[in-house]
Every structure is written in C-alpha cells, then in structure tokens.
C-alpha cells in the first residue's frame, strides 16, 4: 500500500507530465484486449507502418511523451510504468505465463522488483493461475493486473511484491 501512495504522490507532483504531455495514443489504451493481436500477414505492398517513420510514435526525448500523460489514467492497480508495459505486451505476457518463463514475463518481474530468488515462484504462480489471470478472451489489462496482484498477495513468497 505504501508503494501505491508513494507512486500516486510522485505522479501528482511530477511537473514534467503536464509540461510534456502531447496527444499520444501509445499506451493510452490501457484496457485494450489481450488477444486482439495484430493483423495478419498478407504482404502489404508499400504498407504504411514502420520504424516510427510514419509518425505512429510521438516524437520526444523526454518521458512525458513516452506514453500518455503519466497521471492520465486513474485507478491503476500498479504503478504507471508497469501498467504501460503490461498493456503494450499483454499477448506476450499471456504466452509467457502459460509456458512458465520468457523474456516478457521476466521483464515484468524486474519491473515489479521481484528478486531473483523469488522469480521461479513468480513464474510458477502465474502459470498455475493462468486461467484465473486470463479468465476469458475479453479481459482487459487492468483486470489482468488486478488478478495478478491477488494471485501474488495469496502467495507467501510473493506477497511483498504485490500492490494490493
């Protein structure tokens, strides 16, 4: 709980967010659906997305423009940075949780500050509880993060990393 208060406090006082916030769709879609993958493979001749060259990323050096305004989303179950990561990588997270390891799941563990000695417990817990964390195909990122928090809170080794 302490962490949550701290984060909210930090977000509130950060002047950068308002100074630098630009209209941006990257990451503002917290709540996007997990299995809504990308479009298929049909070779799109002269297709129009790549490299950020077509402006599908906003341009900026500072972090205010990394995602949507840092304090733009209320009621996040985890700090903004974790929520943003989960939202952008939900497909991969689902995959890694079901398998029981993987780069994306490990990165989430790092963001949640899970210590190395507890990582296998973390991987294991998300695997065993996969069906709970992803109860159906319409689940939103926020719901996933809430369930993840619950799963961690009920696991003695992981309780201290949870945000609930």
């Amino acid at each position: 709980m302490k962490k949550v208060i701290l984060t909210v406090a930090t977000l509130a006082i950060l002047p950068t967010a308002s100074v630098l916030a630009k209209p941006n769709n990257v990451g503002c879609g917290i709540g996007s659906m997990v299995f809504e993958g990308k479009s298929g493979v049909a070779p799109q001749i002269l297709a129009a997305t790549t490299n950020g060259t077509f402006g599908n990323q906003t341009f900026g050096i500072t972090f205010g423009t990394l995602g949507c305004a840092k304090n733009g989303v209320v009621g996040l179950p985890v700090p903004h940075k974790i929520a943003l990561f989960a939202d952008q990588n939900l497909d991969k997270l689902a995959h890694d949780m079901a398998v029981g390891n993987g780069e994306t799941l490990n990165s989430l563990a790092v963001l949640m500050e899970v210590q190395d000695q507890d990582k296998s417990a973390f991987f294991n817990a998300t695997k065993i509880n996969f069906a709970k964390i992803f109860p159906d195909e319409n689940v939103t990122t926020i719901e996933v993060l809430k369930s993840l928090n619950n799963v961690m809170a009920n696991e003695p080794r992981l309780k201290r990393y949870s945000y609930s």
Binding site: V26, F59, L84, Q88, N89, D91
Partner: peptide
C-alpha cells in the same frame, strides 16, 4: 530524435 522503451521497437519489428 525520440526515446521510447525498447519493447515498443521489439513489438514493431519482431511481432
């Protein structure tokens, strides 16, 4: 120039 998390780029390229 812009800065973004590397995972954005990985998503764009690999996925």
């Amino acid at each position: 120039f812009s800065i973004m998390p590397y995972y954005h780029k990985v998503k764009e390229y690999s996925n």
